[in-house]
Structures are given as structure tokens and as C-alpha cells.
Design a binder for these strands. Structure first.
Lengths: 296, 296
DNA sequence: CGATCACATGACAAATTTCGATCACGGCAT
DNA sequence: ATGCCGTGATCGAAATTTGTCATGTGATCG
């Protein structure tokens, strides 16, 4: 009892199980943590023996957590949150100022929210003004100096050296099985918005590839598009995060969609210590977890 | 930046600085942690270099924390709290039942409160009924089976093998400088209560040692006694925790007070899994910190 | 059935951590 | 001042922990 109880939970081990949950597997977690697969495997093993219980359920193929695993995961999240905040708090400098930040709808409910909340706590004298718009709008606002920085989606080939990459995303053409696409007719297209650059690309390829897209539905939020796809109203370009089991990915007929990247893009000639810090925190979070966690 | 930020705060290191604060010095902390002094010294050094700042102010003799040190200490407390709770949570068994617990006024505001709160959280099906009384009363209640366990003060020589020792305490005779004690007159005595066993001892020695004590003040709480001493109403027996700078410790004339010990004493023939667990948690907390933390 | 993916395991190398001994410094009493 | 503590820093050696490489196992898929 005493032996067991005197044992400690290593921060690294907690980060490891967190990464496993987060990346869905030991191998990927190891990659994100900058370790070898065996190192992470060993880490978990050690954690398990020190706790005297199984954390992962290895029986089946996919790595699943046991009840104890889930329980520890909950504590791990809270402990790591405090830990990281402590680390930041000790390296912080007193900041003051004003930040105008732009976000897309998608990123609003990601780990970014935590980072912003923590930033607020650590730097109460910095006022962060956040606006949620579509990527194309944000880019324009950046150009016009209305924003100091924004988190926007861009095509993979458009990434600038100064951009901070958050995560990559693959687009897919999807439809509901109930929707049939005769070769001859034009294709009903579900679009985010006039200003959505998926749509720009889709319409461009339509002209090049001889495919006639007809926009039959417009909606600013992903939830709306998902609903429209599932009701068989047409085809849409969706990222993996929004795929549902009942959807059908269309692999033929349409050209392969380009890869997308979420980046932090800073406004031109912005000299702002507070912003520097915030961006550094985002970068550090990424380097730690190998990407930004998207809330389920 | 990245190098620094990628560093982690070891749980052990956090526990170390916590122990240093708590025991007021590296050497004692090392003892409590079951490590050598140099190990703890190194631990702190490592922590400091990894953070890039000083935590302890070694200039003066006494070990003092820097501002950063205090800040980290705050996080350390919270992180360790979560950490320990996680550890307990994973080794817990489902408990149910009823515990009748007795406490003294003093221990109510110690780390015990945290342990009890955590216990409640981890074992919602156990109802803990707590009663605060004086040590002598609690002992009687234990004997009569009204309590399952109690935290009581006893003389050091009265400790039983089954008692769990929380911490030791030294009593002192104190008075305010303004109070003069003529050799001839009887001594005005400030007492907790009829049932306080300090008082029993004091009156006994009064008879043996030829010192005439006259009880001039009775109050159930320590705060009242402290106030009475400081107003020069008389002499009292106080433990170190309640000493104030302006008080005068009387070393001559009175016999040296006996040492006191706070213990967890269990009722007779009590078979109670929930109580076993609670007592085990208290023991584990003690083995970890080498004593029970008293809230300031 | 063979290829592949994902994880476990064992041996060994590298790093970190601990210990014991010793040194340095600041009070404190003589 | 002059020795003592009591405390903490520092050093080299030993012990422990942690990570890597190579390899083994089982499950899945075409």
C-alpha cells in the first residue's frame, strides 16, 4: 500500500496518455511527443505497473482506454492544464495592450479557447478582442489592418513562411447515398457562403473540368451543411471532422480537392509584445501536442 | 524559448519545494521526504535552472522563497492536490457506510479538512458525521462507542500502539510582559475549560510543586486564551502555534510542561472498511509530508 | 496466404538522480 | 577574534530511470 501510494505520476507519463487519447494510438502519440513508439509503450507500461492496474485495453485492435484509464485521463487533463499554466506563469513578463484577433467558426471550439482563457488569466492587462468570420473575410481584414492576427484556413500551397501551422485538413466530396448523380445533369452543390473559398475552388474546377455545379444551398455554419448533405440535397466539400458514417465519399468524377491548412497569420507590420506572446503560446502548445486539439 | 518551455515540472520537485516551505528548510524537508539533503538541494537547483529563475533566496541564513518561488508554490499546492487525489481515486474501492468522527478545535483547520473533503468527493456513499469537542470529551465518547475514531491530544507518554501520530506539540508557560508575578501571591491561570487536560495537569503540579494556581479565566477556544494572555490577565499553557511575538515564555519557576501528541485514536472493536480507508489516507498524508500540515 | 499496421518486449546505452563526503558560509557563544 | 554548530552547496561514484534499436506477436485486409 505504502509502496504504491508513495509512487508518483510523472508529468511526462500523463502527457503521454493524453497524447494517446488525443491522437488515437501509441505510435502517433509518440510521433507527436517526439519519442519513439517503444518509449511511449514503456512509459505506459511503467505507469500501469506503478498504479497496479491496466490503463489501456489491448485486447482488441484499436487502442481503447479502460475505466481506470478514462478516470486517470480526466485527472491528467486537469493536472497538465495547471502544470502548463504554472510554467507559463513563471516565464511571463508583464504585458499590457490590445489584441484584435480573428477566428473561424471551426477553431472557436478547439484548444484555442483554453489558450485564450489562460492568456486572459495570466495577462489581465491585455484586452483581447475576438471576432469570428469566414477565412476569406478574415484575410481581407488582416490586409486592411483591422486585425492583428487571425486563424484562417488556406490552401496548403498558399502557406507563407511567417504563418504558424495549426493543423492540416483534407477535404472530401461527399453526398448521401440516396442522392444519385446522373452523368448528364448538373450537380447540386451545397456551399458555405459566397465568400467561402471552398466554393471558389469548386466553381473554378467546374469550369475547367467540365463539371457543372449548381449551388442549391448556402449556409454559414458547418452544422447546416452537414444536415443538408444528409438529407440528400446535394454534394458538398467537407473536412474529415464533419464526416458522418452515413455519408458517402465521392472518389471518382470530381477532381481531388486540395489540402487545407489552418494557420495563424499575423497582420503586416504589427509590433505587439502581447501578440508575440500569445502566438508563442499557441506555437508551444502545438509543438507539445503536435497539432491543436479540436474539441470533440 | 522552446527548450525552456518543453521542460517539465517534476512532481517530485514540486513536492520538494512544498516540503521545504512546510518544514522551513532543505535539510528538514529532505528528512520528511526520505531523501538526503544533497538530493533535495540538487532537485531545487535543477528546477531552478530548468525554469531559468531563482526559487530560493539563499543570501540570508534562513531559507526564504523568492517571488517566483511563492508563485510556483501556489501552483505546486494545486497540482499536488490533484495528483494525490488522482492517485487515490485510482486505488479506491467502492465504499459505503457511516463514520462518526471526532475532532478537536485545533485540527479542524488543518490539512485534515482537505483530506475529509477529498474523502467525501471520492466516496460519496460514505456519510461522515463530524463532531468537534475537547480531547477529554472525545476520549470519553470513544470509550462509550459514540465515535468510531477521533483526533485527540494526549500526553506523549500516553500514546498507544494503535494510535496514529499526527504531530507533536510543545507546551509553554506564557504571559504578557506587563504581568508581574510576585513570588508570594498565587498565580492567575487562564484555562481552556474544566475538562481541559492541560488544566488538570497544571492544577496537579500546582499541588505537587507548591505553586498556587488560581483559575481566573475560562474559554473554550484558543483565540480567547490568546487574547486574555495578551491583555495581561494571567499565565496560560499554550502550544507553539498560538504563541505571539509579544508574549513572554516563562522558563523558570514553573515545571516544564509535558509534550503533547495529536493522534488518531480509533474506537474499540470498530470494523469499518470506510474508516480503515480514511485512516489509511491520513497515515499516507503523514508519511508523505512527515506530519500533518496545519493551516496558517 | 503474405503484407501491413500497431503495439509489446528485451537488451543495451544514455541520461538522470541519489548518496556520501566534503567544503563554504553565517550566526553564536566563549 | 576564535572556534563551533547548523545549513546548504558541490563533487565524484553508484544506482536508477528513461529512451532506442531490433525483434516478436497478433490482428486486419486484400
Amino acid at each position: 500500500m505504502s509502496e504504491l501510494n508513495n509512487r508518483r505520476l510523472e508529468i511526462d507519463a500523463l502527457r503521454a496518455i493524453w497524447a494517446i487519447r488525443h491522437h488515437g494510438g501509441i505510435t502517433r502519440a509518440a510521433e507527436a511527443l517526439g519519442l519513439s513508439q517503444s518509449a511511449v509503450s514503456h512509459k505506459i507500461k511503467r505507469l500501469e505497473t506503478s498504479l497496479g492496474c491496466e490503463l489501456l485495453n489491448r485486447k482488441s485492435g484499436a487502442t481503447a482506454f479502460t475505466t481506470e484509464g478514462e478516470e486517470l485521463l480526466d485527472y491528467a487533463g486537469r493536472i497538465l492544464g495547471l502544470h502548463d499554466e504554472a510554467l507559463l506563469s513563471l516565464s511571463k513578463t508583464t504585458l499590457a495592450g490590445r489584441i484584435a484577433l480573428g477566428l473561424t467558426e471551426d477553431t472557436t471550439c478547439s484548444a484555442l479557447a483554453h489558450i485564450l482563457g489562460r492568456f486572459r488569466r495570466l495577462h489581465p492587462d491585455v484586452s483581447v478582442r475576438t471576432q469570428v468570420r469566414m477565412s476569406l473575410v478574415l484575410r481581407a481584414m488582416l490586409e486592411q489592418g483591422e486585425l492583428d492576427a487571425a486563424i484562417v484556413q488556406v490552401f496548403a500551397h498558399e502557406v507563407r513562411p511567417t504563418d504558424v501551422i495549426l493543423f492540416r485538413e483534407t477535404l472530401h466530396w461527399v453526398k448521401h447515398p440516396s442522392l444519385l448523380l446522373p452523368q448528364t445533369a448538373s450537380v447540386p452543390f451545397l456551399s458555405f457562403h459566397d465568400d467561402c473559398f471552398y466554393r471558389h475552388w469548386a466553381l473554378d474546377i467546374g469550369q475547367d473540368g467540365g463539371i457543372m455545379l449548381e449551388t442549391v444551398f448556402e449556409c454559414a455554419s458547418a452544422a447546416g451543411i452537414v444536415a443538408a448533405v444528409n438529407s440528400g440535397m446535394g454534394v458538398a466539400l467537407l473536412n474529415e471532422r464533419h464526416l458522418r458514417p452515413e455519408m458517402q465519399i465521392i472518389t471518382d468524377r470530381f477532381p481531388v480537392p486540395p489540402d487545407l491548412v489552418y494557420v495563424v497569420r499575423r497582420g503586416r507590420k504589427v509590433r505587439n509584445a502581447a501578440l508575440d506572446t500569445l502566438v508563442a503560446e499557441i506555437e508551444s502548445e502545438i509543438s507539445r501536442y503536435g497539432g491543436l486539439a479540436l474539441a470533440s
